Computed example of a mutant assay.
Amino acid sequence: MEENGKNVPEEVKGWNWGAFVYAIFWGIGNKTYLPLLCLIPVFNFVWIFVCGFKGNEWAWQKGDYKDVETFKAVQSTWNRAGLVNFIVSIVFLAAYFIFIAVLISSVANLKNY
């Protein structure tokens, strides 16, 4: 596949957690500005998934990487940070819902006394 005059190697393609979680910052850091569309309310929910799927391709096309290994090394930092942030967010969200459920249950039990 060739866009903007740059071939995208197959080993570059794939999911990018950094582009998914940190879309706007990742886009600016990788000189690709399509992730700025995440600033549009409602549309952003769909666009973060597009960023996750297409992020590596966009970064490869806009970057001046000498080889695939260098590209992967740079993106692995973004991927690691994005994945850790995603997991921590899910854990906090689950803890929040458990807390709310316990709180509602406690209030309901107090009304029975």
Rank of each mutant, 00 (worst) to 15 (best):
G55Y: 08
Q61F: 08
K72Q: 14
L93D: 02
A101S: 12
V84L: 09
P41I: 04
V46W: 07
G18C: 05
N44S: 03
I48T: 04
F49K: 05
S76F: 10
V50C: 00
A73D: 14
F43Y: 15
Y33Q: 08
G82T: 11
A73I: 03
Y65A: 06
V107R: 10
F97R: 01
F97I: 00
N112Q: 14
F45L: 11
L93N: 12
N44V: 07
N56Y: 00
I87Q: 01
N109Y: 10
G82P: 04
K66A: 02
Q75M: 15
N109G: 03
R80M: 14
V50S: 03
F71I: 10
Y113G: 09
F53C: 02
Y33I: 04
Y33K: 06
W60V: 10
K31V: 00
P35E: 03
L110H: 03
I104N: 14
A73G: 15
A81Q: 10
I24K: 00
K66M: 12
L93P: 06
A19G: 14
V84E: 06
W47H: 01
V91C: 05
N112R: 08
L110K: 04
N79L: 04
S105F: 13
G52R: 04
F43M: 14
F99H: 11
I100K: 13
V68M: 09
Y96R: 02
C38Y: 01
N56A: 05
L83F: 15
A23N: 06
L36R: 04
G63K: 02
N85R: 13
F45V: 11
I40Q: 10
V88K: 08
D67M: 02
N112P: 00
W78I: 10
G29Y: 05
G63I: 11
S106W: 14
G18V: 03
V107E: 00
Y33F: 15
I100L: 15
V84C: 00
F49R: 06
Y65H: 04
G29N: 06
I100Q: 13
W26F: 12
T77C: 12
C51M: 00
I28T: 09
N44C: 04
F49G: 08
K72D: 02
N30Y: 06
R80N: 11
P41L: 12
Q75N: 14
A59G: 10
Y65Q: 08
I40L: 13
N56H: 07
G55S: 03
W47D: 07
F25Q: 13
A59H: 01
F20R: 00
A59L: 02
F97H: 01
S76G: 12
S76V: 04
F20G: 11
Y96F: 15
D67W: 12
F20P: 10
A81L: 13
Y113E: 14
K72L: 05
K54L: 10
